[in-house]
Amino acid sequence: MSAMAGSADARRVTIGLVFTVLAMLSFVTVGLLANHLVDRGNLPVVVASYEALFGLAFTLGIRARRLRSGGSPVGSGLGWMLGAGVLFAMATGSFYTALARVDYSVAAPIVGAVPLVSYVFVLLLLRGYERLTPRVVFGAMLVVAGVGIIGAAN
């Protein structure tokens, strides 16, 4: 029984990782396109604003049917979502403005430090839900160091 539960958990995590890899590929492409646009003189905050507006239109389109049918209760998640929205707005605006001042090959490796920032907030907000093992912290530090080396080399 526990073996079946373990197998289901492994499948869930694997599917989650596949989603994450696809997201990573999308974000890298977005970063390169944003770099192209701000290098051509477009205002970074305007690019970020339009991107969010298009994103809102697309995600609303996908979600429209469920929203019309009553949707899901938001409940205690509202505050977390609003906070995340403000942080993502700050991050996107800052990153695109950074791209107007430094090369993508310099800015992108700095954003590679996101896992370490997340781990600090995991300790603060997700204690009891996710564990930070020494092995994971070591792996994340290798990723950050590797991305830093790539940035320094380019």
Binding site: R12, V13, I15, G16, L17, F19, T20, V21, A23, M24, L25, F27, V28, G31, L32, Y104, S105, A108, P109, V111, G112, A113, V114, P115, S118, Y119, V122, L126, Y129, E130, R131, L132, V136, G139, A140, V143, V144, G146, V147, I150, G151, N154
Partner: peptide, 19 residues
């Protein structure tokens, strides 16, 4: 599905894909 501790480092490896 995978949690922040697993997913965030995968995302952080993005510059490798850019290279």
């Amino acid at each position: 599905r995978a949690g922040v501790t697993l997913a965030a480092p995968i995302l952080g490896a993005g510059p490798l894909f850019a290279i």
